[in-house]
Amino acid sequence: MDVKVLGPGCPKCNQTEKVLLEAIQEMGLDLSVEKVKDIKEIASYGVFGTPAVVINGEVKSVGKVPTKDEAKSWLQKAR
């Protein structure tokens, strides 16, 4: 599975990454989270707003820090 956080490196992006990592750990998955910081690459996903979460190329959330439960349900579906 391919998990990405899009965002230029602001507090909210770091928080989003943390939430995802916690969710992954609690579900006992062996995954890493890739951070996409390049503005052009972020825009190429068509997201209007950051931080955004992309799982397996699919945009899951835009412009907010997700809750851990949301993150878990995305990961569950993508499994």
Binding site: G7, P8, C10, K40, A43, S44, F48, G49, T50, P51
Partner: peptide
């Protein structure tokens, strides 16, 4: 919008490239 996204630049790039 500017107060909500973490910076305006990704939003700008999105509007330019996709919008």
């Amino acid at each position: 919008l500017a107060v909500c996204s973490c910076t305006v630049l990704p939003l700008f790039a999105g509007i330019y490239m996709r919008g």
